[in-house]
Design a protein around this nucleic acid. Structure first.
Lengths: 182, 182
DNA sequence: GAAGATACGGAGCGGCTACTCCGGTTGTCA
DNA sequence: TGACAACCGGAGTAGCCGCTCCGTATCTTC
């Protein structure tokens, strides 16, 4: 792969993330190309279809989230690491997290493309969760799947209510054991 | 307004709700017309633009939710009435509740059209909430705005995780006071 | 620095979709 | 039942968007 090709691929991905977050999934590929400073042909060479581009953006975001989760496993108090991760994901950009929902709403089948990185993210969350549960900071009757679903929901709630809302805090409180408080 | 006109308007609204829930907001107006059993011209006479149709569907759904909330104020134990309403909304059809999100994702400005019915729903939730809080079934430090945001988030979580998921239950637990359990 | 491979740009094509327009039909009222 | 207005149907239009194609430019290798 030539150097300029790799550079352009990155630029397109970055531009696509921004454009789709800003104007929705319906934004045209041409606008992505403009923002990236490349021609349309270049976009379609790297991502043979618009759907492939959307999937790539999603995969990229999930990979970054998985990285963040893994980083947080190492240090600090388990409960703080866990809830800190949740807050970070939601606070970073709720709009971006709603991306997968917009894809599904547009009739894009995402499952297959996201399967691998999805397992990565799942595993990372599972570790964070197990440690937090052992420390008694999270109720013991939830699994990684439920945590991720809660995360998706909290992102949507914040997107709806605005960044200043306490909705995410309330939602995360549902993950805490009954007697404890954060 | 002639009788057939009113009938067709209703059919179109019904068909639109079904089609958009099924195939996403990107579904064509022609398919809505087909499902409603009318011509495209009829659709566009009642709703001068596709955006107007989408808004009308959303308003209709919110009005029904407000009705359900008001019905529940009357009878039963306050906490049960409140959480029953939440579960009913989420259980009824998470996909439909994600509708507003899909609209926003498509770049549709919804606020103005929904303002009035939104206040209706807000007021109804406020009453349900206040009674539940007085009865000690809901933590006292949340308002109607946060409840609605939580509801939106829970709908999204269920849509993501599937109807069988316990995610909504976990999320709703965040609304409960610390010492109590449902 | 020359030659081959690789990548870029963007005009153009086909298809789809929101929306219009008007001849025909149906409901309504005296 | 007749006459008028309201309404319907759906072919047609304009415009947008995903995607292709190929001449040109850029990178790499020897």
């Amino acid at each position: 792969m030539r150097a300029d090709a790799r550079r352009n691929r990155g630029r397109v991905l970055e531009a696509a993330e921004a454009v789709f977050a800003e104007h929705g999934v319906g934004a045209s590929t041409e606008e992505v190309a403009r923002r990236a400073g490349v021609g349309i042909g270049t976009v379609f060479r790297h991502f043979p279809t618009k759907e492939a581009l959307l999937e790539a953006v999603l995969v990229e975001r999930m990979r970054r989230l998985a990285d963040v989760a893994r980083e947080r496993v190492g240090g600090g108090e388990p409960g703080e690491a866990f809830f800190g991760f949740l807050e970070l994901v939601v606070g970073q950009s709720a709009t971006k997290n709603a991306f997968a929902g917009a894809l599904a709403g547009a009739g894009v089948d995402v499952e297959s493309a996201v399967a691998e990185v999805g397992r990565e993210l799942w595993a990372a969350v599972e570790v964070l969760l197990a440690r937090a549960q052992e420390a008694g900071a999270v109720r013991p009757d939830v699994g990684a799947g439920e945590v991720i679903a809660v995360l998706v929901g909290a992102s949507r709630a914040v997107e709806y209510a605005g960044a200043g809302s306490r909705a995410a805090q309330v939602i995360f409180d549902g993950l805490r054991p009954r007697e404890a408080t954060g």
